[in-house]
Design a binder for these strands. Structure first.
Lengths: 167, 167
DNA sequence: TATTGTTATACTCTATAACTATA
DNA sequence: TATAGTTATAGAGTATAACAATA
């Protein structure tokens, strides 16, 4: 069942053995050779680590992202945040709602353009963000260790090449 | 608003400029330096390309994965497929249902263990899979071109290092 | 007692359309 | 007319629990 068979339909040739596919009784050689399956499994693993990292603080990845971006861009509006984070505008509403309800962020009606609601962190939000960033840095270190610190930098560049090919 | 400011809180130092983050009026330097955000944006881009690739054939990524794995593992049961693909067992039910309804795959009650339903491709399923694989190969070529063909192989290994650190 | 397939449930996410208030 | 925030809705995906059949 696990015998090595010469495959001719792999999308790339795999010659190194750094990086193992998931354990399973099934022959997954085809899927394992695809960027799409590999990146999905990698994201699942990375996000699982983040969720464990933030579990006690009851913060999701997207909530963390909003806090971090607003900290560097105080007064950003919801549409800009949505496009920055790659979520649809309607989804920002419950996300900001939850942060506001917890006293971590606040909406302020813009005086320059009264259609805009500007988002700011509260003092409490800033305090929590510092703790989240501290923990996130530990998470990131774990990810870099998986990659080997010398390869980590190129990995980030390659991910952005996939995400943003025309630039 | 877009002036370059020296940041001290980046999780990794970014010295190269291969690979651009998404356009936005906001300062995203912190998020852009995280593996988590980069891998999420990369997966979004990769899957978007796959969906465009399969659009006319009305096939989702998970349906394609099931067809591909069953082709190499005829008679696999739903639990094995679920764990191989990283989805929960209950989700396999509607996935297999849809493939069965389209006449692409079929469930066969196992005689060795009557709890198992073994999954097989139909002739029609095999024919469609060949077309899907042909199109998928083109998609993968586009992804490899984004990476530069020399880096593509290491990328795959690195993704598996993230996905499966202990192996 | 444990496992497979299944059903059920609830919650999150995604994708759209449309409404309101503003511009 | 166009845009920001919002509401509504429908469809996927995710996560659990539980049940029937079987081991």
């Amino acid at each position: 069942m696990n015998e090595q068979v010469q495959r001719t339909d792999r999308l790339v040739s795999v010659t190194t053995d750094e990086g193992q596919p998931p354990e399973s009784g099934l022959d997954l050689t085809y899927l394992e050779s695809t960027i799409g399956y590999a990146i999905r499994r990698a994201q699942m693993a990375v996000f699982q680590d983040i969720y464990r990292t933030f579990a006690e603080l009851n913060v999701t990845t997207v909530q963390f992202s909003v806090l971090a971006v607003v900290a560097d861009n105080p007064g950003a509006n919801q549409a800009d945040l949505a496009s920055a984070l790659g979520v649809e505008r309607p989804r920002m509403v419950p996300i900001i709602d939850s942060l506001e309800k917890r006293g971590l962020a606040k909406r302020v009606a813009s005086v320059k353009d009264r259609r805009h609601r500007q988002i700011f962190l509260t003092d409490q939000g800033r305090v929590l963000l510092e703790e989240l960033k501290r923990r996130f840095a530990e998470h990131q270190q774990r990810m870099l260790q998986r990659l080997g610190t010398d390869h980590a930098q190129t990995m980030l560049g390659q991910l952005w090449l996939l995400a943003k090919p025309n630039s």
